[in-house]
Design a protein around this nucleic acid. Sequence first.
DNA 1: CACACCTCTTGAACATGTTCAACTAACCGC
DNA 2: GCGGTTAGTTGAACATGTTCAAGAGGTGTG
Lengths: 251, 251
Amino acid sequence: MTGVTTAAAEPAEPQPDAPTEAGTEAGTAKPRRARGEQTRQLILETALRLFRERGYAETTMRVIAKEAGVAVGNAYYYFDSKEHLIQGFYDRNQAAHHAAAGPILATEKELAPRLRGVLHAGIDVNAPYHSFAATFFKTAAEPTSPLSPFSRESAPAREAAIAIFREVVDGSTAKLDPELRKELPELLWLGWMGVVLFWVYDKSPGQRRTRRLIDGAVPLIDRLVSLSRLRVLRPALRQVLALIETVRKDD
Amino acid sequence: MTGVTTAAAEPAEPQPDAPTEAGTEAGTAKPRRARGEQTRQLILETALRLFRERGYAETTMRVIAKEAGVAVGNAYYYFDSKEHLIQGFYDRNQAAHHAAAGPILATEKELAPRLRGVLHAGIDVNAPYHSFAATFFKTAAEPTSPLSPFSRESAPAREAAIAIFREVVDGSTAKLDPELRKELPELLWLGWMGVVLFWVYDKSPGQRRTRRLIDGAVPLIDRLVSLSRLRVLRPALRQVLALIETVRKDD
DNA sequence: CACACCTCTTGAACATGTTCAACTAACCGC
DNA sequence: GCGGTTAGTTGAACATGTTCAAGAGGTGTG
């Protein structure tokens, strides 16, 4: 849970401003008025609830506004577009994934189970939103969208996600090539994006095919990572790393 | 079910309007149908041209209709939605890719250059539509959309695409594990989807990063395919194939 | 207190994808 | 030729995301 969640049972309390301005929230300035933040949260909560209840496309901005008891234009004062409401969902699930991964990362020390646990935790967290996620995935896929996982706007969220996989690697007992170790977290995150992609398309009951994919792919990755220390595979590994380097240039 | 776009085996060329009802129909008289088909083509041509000229989002259905000289409702008689116009683009580029790959496949006999040639040909064909493709990709990404490359509706197009990669493999001199040989075309197609994904997000001038990705990835794939015959890697290969098998179950 | 200012709120207006009932015209059976 | 059937066509009407000029309400300053 982030500290932002609750829909505030308390009326705006004399909490005028924290000792430090500590406005680590998304971008915009953080003046002393808390009233706006309350409205913002109200709109976001309402929107996410409606998305879950009736789906993204079926939830109109007018309904969100009406249900939240504000004018439609007010929603646009806080969120640039309907899509931007999704960012809230995004951030929240990101945090939930991190929290859910905690226990496994604290317990397990071997690479494979760590990775497996983190991946399953990610699916667990997202499971309740599978049908909704499918529709909103569409907007996230648009390259020009700020919601794209590769966009500059979602860089913080992306970094946070990669950090989870860095913890998977760094906290493990696995011995691996130092250069590979450096790149592995991002590669694993990329793999995770692939799993999510697969999951979004997975129509099997309970998305069990995705579970099977994870269970099958993790040992494979584990094996490949181990094999990468073999002499025969050294040039191939170098080739992979060089490719990553080359492709990454001028972005 | 085939017969989506029958005579589409040619590279996409503007093809100025056929002489208006001159000698259009010969023996197989479907004059009734022919008129509709003509309108359909006219709308599609107009739409694709406008998409290229001004982008997908910026091209309104009203403008398409006006430019084509028909009523807006008429476009909806032939195409279920604006997105469905994209299917035309899809089919056409698929055919163009096949055509563009022809010379390389006829000339080259080694796996790596064959694959490289086919991939570059694919990018060549799509290059003029890069900015438009980004938006189109958004639509294709939606799992419920018939335009998704994984949907049942696009199975024919998908099969056609995989067939290109089957030709890449089968026509090559490369010696490889028989089971791998069976799976490789689909895997390469999946890789091609990945390249397309990368390309869509590639904002470098002329999408040169994608070119570099291809040039870097092809030798790597080539090397891995060769290495797969090594004894040490035999179990890993089996593991990969088993994973594919497992995941594919109940779809 | 008056005034200015700034955050926040409003709802009508606008743009665009989509639908629909009505209309036209070519064809077919008589 | 006549009436009916059906493919083809129309444009107004509708739904929804988004914008915008105007106003409300509080906060600080003179």
